[in-house]
Design a protein around this nucleic acid. Structure first.
Lengths: 202, 202
DNA sequence: GCGTTACGAGTCTGACCCGTATCGTATTTG
DNA sequence: CAAATACGATACGGGTCAGACTCGTAACGC
C-alpha cells in the first residue's frame, strides 16, 4: 500500500500498532460505496469513515488523501488473470475474451464504468489501468503468435488490431452496455468465431 | 428544449422576452466546463452561471435543475450522422466505423468518457444515449444487409455480432484509450479489412 | 506502571454549493 | 406613459465536506 508505513523491515515501533481490521474496514467501505453508485468525485472521506465505523483521523493517518486511498482500494479489484490452457487457439481465445471485464469481486462490474473518466484525467489512475490490462494483453498476444507459428492463423495478420477486434466487443458490452439485446453469455464464442472466419463471402 | 417555454404557439406574452444570447451562453458554458474536465456530478450551477456571465436566477428560470440543463446541453453534441455513399460495402463500412466517436464539436471527445457513469445510472441519460446510437447502428445494419443481398458478405453471419465487432475496437480506442500505441487514423480501415477477411489461415 | 502510539468520536474553521429572494435596471406590449 | 417580465448581481439560510484538532480510552514495549 502506497502511503502506509512499511511493515517489512520495521524494528517494531513503540505504542499501539495500527489496527489491521481498520485497514480492511476502510478499503471495504470504499469499495462498497463505489459499488452502490457513489461516483469517485462525490465519494467523501467522511462517508467512508462513517461506513467503516472509523474515525476520520484513522483514515488520514494512513493515506494522504482521497486519491491515495482510492488507488489502494482499486488495486483490490484486479482479480486473477485467466490462464489459457493451450489446447487450441480458438478455445484459448474464447477463454481470454470471456474473462474481459469479468472480475472476482462482484462489485467490480458496478465500479468499472465509474472509473472511465478518472482514467482519462488522472495520470496515476491511467497508469494503474494500463498496468492491469497490459499483462492481459500480453497473454492474448502470445496466444495469437502461437496460432501464427502453428499455422492456424494467417502469418500476415496485424496482431494489435486483432486484439482490439477481440477485446472491443466485450468491453463495450460489459462497460458501456452498448447493445442491450446482445447476449453476453455466448458473446465470447461468437466474437472469436466471427474474427476467425471473417464475414466476406467466398 | 425540455423545460423552456414553447416558442411555437406563443400569443406573445407581455414584458421583456427571454434573451436568446443567455440561452446560448449557458449551454456553451456548460459544455466548456465539461470539456475542461469537470465531471457531471461536480459541475455546479454556480460555476456555469459565472462562466456564462449570467445570474443564477436566469438559469433556474429556464431549467428545473442541473439534470434538465445537462440533458439539453448534451443534445447539442449529437452531430451529424455519417451518410454511407453506397459505392462498395467495404468503403461504406470504413466510413461508418471512422465516424464512431468522431463528433462535429471538438469538445465531445473530452466529454464522452465522463458520460459513461451517468449513462449507467440515470435512466434518462441511458435513453438519450441509446436514442443517439440507435440510428447509427441502423445505418450500419443496412449496409451489412445490403452486403449480404449483393453476395459480398456471407449469408450466415450474425449481423448484430458483426456490428459489435466493427464498433468495439473504435470505441475502446476513442473512449477508453485502450491501447495508446494503436494508430486511430488508419484503424477504421484495418478493422474493416480484418473483419472482412478473418484471421484463420486458409 | 510508564511512555508511546492508535483508536472512535466528536468539534471547529473555511470553503463551496443549492435554491430562493431581492435589489436596481433594461426591454417589451398596450 | 404604465404594467409586465427579464436581466446581472448579490445576499440569504441550510447543507456537505476537507483537514486539523481534541477528547477519553485501548494496546503495545520496556
Amino acid at each position: 500500500m502506497a502511503d502506509m508505513t512499511s511493515t517489512a523491515d520495521a524494528p517494531r515501533s513503540p505504542g499501539r500498532p495500527r489496527s489491521i481490521r481498520a485497514d480492511e474496514a476502510i478499503i471495504e467501505a470504499t469499495l462498497d460505496l463505489l459499488a452502490e453508485g457513489s461516483s469517485i468525485e462525490v465519494l467523501s472521506i467522511e462517508a467512508i469513515a462513517a461506513r467503516a465505523g472509523v474515525g476520520k483521523a484513522t483514515i488520514y493517518r494512513r493515506w494522504a488523501g482521497k486519491d491515495a486511498l482510492l488507488l489502494d482500494a482499486l488495486r483490490r479489484l484486479k482479480g486473477i488473470m485467466a490462464q489459457p490452457e493451450g489446447h487450441s487457439v480458438r478455445e484459448d481465445l474464447v477463454l481470454l475474451v470471456g474473462a474481459i471485464g469479468k472480475n472476482v469481486d462482484p462489485r467490480a462490474a458496478k465500479i468499472m464504468p465509474c472509473l472511465v473518466p478518472a482514467v482519462n484525467r488522472s495520470g496515476d489512475q491511467f497508469q494503474l489501468y494500463q498496468s492491469i490490462i497490459a499483462p492481459r494483453r500480453q497473454l492474448m498476444r502470445e496466444v495469437l503468435r502461437r496460432g501464427i507459428d502453428e499455422g492456424v492463423l494467417r502469418a500476415d495478420i496485424d496482431v494489435e488490431v486483432t486484439m482490439a477486434l477481440l477485446t472491443g466487443p466485450m468491453l463495450i458490452q460489459r462497460v458501456l452496455q452498448w447493445n442491450p439485446d446482445l447476449d453476453e453469455q455466448t458473446l465470447p464464442e461468437r466474437v472469436v468465431d466471427a474474427v476467425l472466419e471473417g464475414i466476406r463471402a467466398r
